[in-house]
Amino acid sequence: MTSPLQRKLKISGPTVVTANRLADGVSVWLTAAGSWSETISDAAVGTTGDEVLRLLDIAHADENTAVGAYPAPATLAADGTPQPANLRERIRVAGPTISLPGAA
């Protein structure tokens, strides 16, 4: 029987941990070194629930740098670097899909 204290996380594929940087809200991704990068390709990738839970623990312990950490699905490029796997995450990586007002 599973203890109620035992945490479970269902992961269906490569997963990265992402958050918003406290100082300016910019999207950031947790790296294998436990730091935050503005580039998803630097992100650490978890492929099991336990791996992603470990990454989330690191992220949550650093809430004074980045807030609201959550697991986000990723795909892996040929060289193994993670890419966003859904529209929401693609927009977080690349910014709004529209030209910003006043932009030339």
Binding site: N20, G25, G68, P96
Partner: peptide, 14 residues
């Protein structure tokens, strides 16, 4: 506290 002042955290920024 930030919400009481109209500050949200959205996809890309505050």
């Amino acid at each position: 506290l930030r919400l009481m002042n109209g500050v949200y955290l959205q996809l890309h920024a505050y």
